[in-house]
Design a protein around this nucleic acid. Structure first.
Lengths: 103, 103
DNA sequence: TCGATAGTTCGATGGTAATCGAACTATGGT
DNA sequence: ACCATAGTTCGATTACCATCGAACTATCGA
């Protein structure tokens, strides 16, 4: 009886709130993650820790996931993260691009 | 020896950080304040409390001021608040408009 | 099946933020 | 001068959040 690895819950675009998205983006670590993900198709969690403990990174990815910014899928032993560009665009048109355009 | 009412400190556009702005906007009460201010030239603090204590409103206005979103000037016994549209636009072009365009 | 690897979850800690009442300050009006 | 009004500041409480180590889970490879 093999149970598959627990899948992550990803909110639908309708479930997203502007406050939650802005809050998720208001942390320097998470903003860096989002900026990084904006330039690659996907990235693993480990690829993004800046020497930080895995548990801290896991926390930030969870916040980003719960806010609807990031999608995580399981690939072997790693977790592949990607920006939910299209869903974000459908729910908050132009918002992500606007934030990412700031320096 | 008359001392004028203590003036508020307003950060310059250069001093603003994206994280701070996004954080200030991530609270429902403050987001409502900003949305309201977007539709009027100026507004007093009292005009915006939704039955909340004055001290709570004062706190939120302070956060918005410190983040650089709101300017407060003294007019008689009241405080007139306005959105710092131009400064915001110069520091984070398009950001405020993008956030305000979301429902 | 035995590591090794990648990441999550748990629990604790410290820091920060929201909230409110109460006291205080400043201004204008009478 | 006195009072009312508008808002700030202070202090306390509560709640939440970032951080980290440690234990746990899942997958792959040997």
């Amino acid at each position: 009886m093999i149970r598959p690895m627990r899948a992550f819950k990803h909110p639908t675009p309708q479930e997203l709130t502007l406050e939650r998205v802005l809050y998720a983006l208001s942390d320097p670590v998470r903003l860096d993650i989002v900026r990084y993900l904006a330039n690659v198709p996907e990235a693993t969690c480990g690829e993004l820790d800046g020497g930080r403990p895995k548990s801290s990174m896991s926390h930030h990815f969870r916040v980003l996931r719960d806010a609807g910014l990031v999608h995580t899928r399981n690939v072997g032993t790693t977790h592949m993260n990607s920006l939910r560009r299209d869903e974000l665009e459908s729910r908050f048109p132009g918002l992500l691009a606007s934030v990412l355009s700031q320096r």
